[in-house]
């Protein structure tokens, strides 16, 4: 715990607790925080997995219900010996973190990109302005959520010597009654990792075959601009991306023959990598892409498919 002597902050020993119901994300966070703050780990899983974490103290939640409330309460019960909390930013993790923040009256910051301790305070950075800029700040927050993929998982070769405690999670207030699979055949573009989107530039419905080949070579989904989906009906309306369609954020978004009007852009601007193929080099899509190819999609795409080995 930190102690203050005559306005000097003397860092005795800051300890962090990492929690994620997802063991991989837990290991990523260990790597992310390595050398910055010493952390113990709490996770929900098998006792046998504990040794794979490079941490001295491990807490295993004895159950992991759908209700975030008992999870938060269980973590709060071990919170007293820690100064900082790092929660994996999964759907459930975000809720758990928010509840802890509320219960413990500790401020929280979400989805941090970096963490450092500076004279007893945390300096963090996070995206701001919808991802346009990164903001750095010194914060009094002590609970943070951390996104998956922030670092590679910290792998331990040999089992770590550690103290393992099982933490009891109370019976949840919400019970899972049944699980229903999503209807087969309905696609969920918002979860696709790779999207190949076509615009009016494909010219004819048959052009979909060319785009389809690229999509299957990459294991991705086909999508389209509004004219293609809801005016010409070459693709179903559920595949439309944009203002009046889906908002998607795949790892790779390939735009074929799409001009890139703002109504389309708002639906795909959160994609990680955007590749555009368009004949017109002044098409606005080229302002939004990471890689742009000026040319006829009917010449370029088959070559790409070939290069991918199909």
């Amino acid at each position: 715990m930190a102690k203050v002597y005559n306005n000097w902050v003397y860092i005795k020993f800051m300890r962090g607790l990492i929690f994620s119901e997802n063991a991989e994300l837990g290991k990523e966070m260990l790597n992310f925080l390595g050398g910055k703050i010493e952390c113990d780990v709490a996770f929900a899983g098998e006792v046998g997995e504990a040794g794979l974490f490079a941490a001295k103290k491990i807490f295993i939640l004895d159950s992991y219900p759908y209700d975030p409330q008992p999870v938060a309460i269980a973590l709060e019960s071990i919170a007293t010996s820690y100064d900082y909390f790092f929660v994996g930013a999964t759907t459930a993790g975000r809720e758990v973190a928010a509840m802890m923040s509320q219960d413990l009256k500790i401020p929280m910051e979400s989805e941090i990109l970096s963490f450092d301790l500076e004279s007893g305070q945390a300096r963090i950075s996070r995206f701001y302005y919808g991802g346009k800029t990164v903001m750095e700040k010194i914060t009094s927050a002590r609970i943070f959520t951390v996104m998956a993929g922030i670092a590679s998982p910290l792998v331990t070769e040999k089992p770590y010597e550690q103290e393992v405690t099982v933490v009891h999670v109370q019976k949840p207030g919400i019970n899972l009654i049944t699980r229903e699979e999503k209807q087969k055949g309905s696609i969920d573009l918002t979860r696709a990792d790779v999207i190949v989107a076509v615009g009016r530039g494909i010219g004819k419905k048959e052009g979909l075959d060319v785009a389809g080949k690229l999509a299957s070579a990459l294991g991705g989904e086909l999508a389209g601009s509004r004219p293609v989906c809801s005016d010409l009906h070459w693709l179903g309306e559920e595949r439309q991306v944009g203002l009046s369609g889906k908002r998607v954020k795949p790892k790779i978004y390939i735009a074929l023959g799409i001009s890139g009007q703002i109504q389309h852009i708002v639906g795909m601007r959160d994609s990680k990598i955007v590749i555009a193929i368009n004949r017109d080099k002044s098409a606005p899509i080229f302002n939004e892409c990471d890689y742009g190819l000026v040319g006829d999609l009917y010449e370029i795409v088959p070559k790409l498919v070939q290069a991918l080995g199909f």
Binding site: Y129, G130, G131, K132, S244, R247, V266
Partner: peptide, 22 residues
């Protein structure tokens, strides 16, 4: 979802388009 995201954009983003106001 479309109507609620319009409202979210208006409440949080300062414009109707869901783009950074900056």
């Amino acid at each position: 979802q479309k109507k609620s995201s319009l409202l979210m954009n208006l409440m949080q983003g300062g414009n109707s388009m869901g783009l950074p106001n900056y």
